[in-house]
Amino acid sequence: EPREEEAEKYIKRANGDYDKAQELAKKDGNEEIAEAIKEYKKR
């Protein structure tokens, strides 16, 4: 799923820090991806 791939990219950029990844996504205006990262975190 493209959303998950995007989320993974942010998580990698944030060195595995989900909260930081979420912030990066929000900064880029990717609210949807920020949500996907939140879902990811719950797994």
Rank of each mutant, 00 (worst) to 15 (best):
N30A: 09
G29Y: 03
I33T: 07
E31Y: 15
D28F: 04
K26Y: 12
Q22E: 12
N15V: 04
E6Y: 06
P2I: 13
E5C: 15
N15R: 08
N30S: 06
R43N: 09
A34V: 14
K41R: 10
E8K: 14
K12Y: 09
R3F: 15
K20T: 06
Q22A: 13
G16M: 05
Y40V: 07
G29Q: 05
E6F: 06
E39Y: 08
K12H: 09
Y10D: 01
N15W: 06
E1I: 14
N15Y: 08
R13L: 14
A34M: 09
K41D: 03
D28G: 03
E1K: 13
E4V: 11
A36W: 15
E1C: 14
E31R: 07
Y40R: 06
E8I: 15
A36F: 15
E32Q: 11
R43D: 05
Y10Q: 00
E39G: 06
R43P: 04
Y10M: 02
K27A: 15
A34K: 03
E31L: 14
E23G: 05
A14G: 03
E4N: 15
E39I: 08
D19R: 06
R43K: 13
K27R: 12
Q22R: 08
R3K: 12
E6S: 10
K26G: 05
E8W: 15
A21E: 00
E8V: 13
E35I: 09
K20P: 00
I37W: 00
K9F: 11
E39M: 10
D19V: 07
K26M: 15
R3I: 15
N15F: 10
I37D: 01
Y18L: 10
R43H: 08
Q22S: 09
K41T: 05
A14P: 00
I11L: 12
K9V: 10
K26N: 07
K27G: 08
K42P: 04
E39C: 11
K38M: 13
A25N: 01
E23S: 07
I33M: 06
A14N: 02
K42G: 07
I33V: 12
K26D: 04
E31A: 11
A34T: 04
Y40K: 05
E8F: 14
I11Q: 01
I37V: 04
K9N: 10
K20V: 13
E39W: 10
N15T: 03
R43A: 08
Y40D: 02
E4A: 11
Y10I: 02
K9R: 11
E5T: 13
A21R: 01
K12D: 06
N30H: 13
P2G: 14
Y18P: 03
E35S: 08
K42F: 10
D28C: 04
E32T: 09
L24V: 03
R43Q: 09
E39R: 12
G29L: 05
D17F: 02
K41I: 07
A21I: 01
E6V: 08
G29A: 04
K12N: 09
Y40H: 07
E4R: 11
K20N: 05
I33A: 13
K42V: 09
G16R: 03
I11Y: 03
E8T: 08
K27V: 08
A14I: 00
R13V: 06
Y10F: 03
E39F: 07
Y40P: 00
K38Y: 09
E8A: 10
K38H: 07
A34Q: 05
R13Q: 10
I11V: 06
E32P: 06
P2M: 14
E35F: 08
R43T: 07
E6D: 09
K38T: 06
E31D: 13
D17W: 03
K41Q: 14
E6N: 07
K38C: 05
E1Y: 14
I11H: 00
E5F: 12
K20A: 09
K38F: 09
L24Y: 08
I37M: 02
A25M: 00
A25C: 04
G29C: 00
D19P: 02
A14F: 04
L24A: 07
L24E: 07
E5A: 13
E35H: 08
D17I: 02
D17G: 01
R43Y: 09
I37R: 01
K42D: 08
E1N: 15
E5V: 13
A25K: 01
R3H: 13
E6W: 11
K26A: 09
Q22M: 15
K20Y: 13
E23C: 10
Y10N: 00
R43E: 06
A25E: 00
K9E: 12
A21S: 01
Q22Y: 15
R3A: 12
D28I: 02
E39L: 11
E4L: 14
Y18N: 02
Y40S: 04
K20Q: 08
A21C: 00
A36S: 07
K27I: 12
K38A: 13
D19I: 07
E6G: 07
A7V: 15
E35R: 11
Q22W: 15
D28H: 04
E35D: 10
D19N: 08
N30M: 11
G29M: 05
K38V: 09
D28Q: 03
E35P: 02
Y18V: 05
A7Q: 04
A25Q: 00
G29I: 01
E31N: 12
R3E: 10
E31S: 09
A34I: 13
K9C: 14
Y18W: 07
N30V: 05
K20H: 07
E23T: 07
D19K: 06
A7M: 13
G29F: 05
E6T: 12
E35N: 10
A36I: 15
K41S: 08
A36G: 04
K27M: 13
N15H: 11
D28V: 03
E32H: 13
N30T: 03
E32A: 12
E32K: 11
Y10H: 00
K12C: 09
A36D: 05
E4D: 14
E4S: 13
K41P: 02
K26I: 15
A21K: 00
E4F: 15
E4T: 10
G16L: 03
E39K: 09
N15A: 07
E39A: 11
K42A: 12
E8Q: 12
E5P: 08
E6Q: 12
R3N: 13
P2S: 15
G29R: 04
D17R: 03
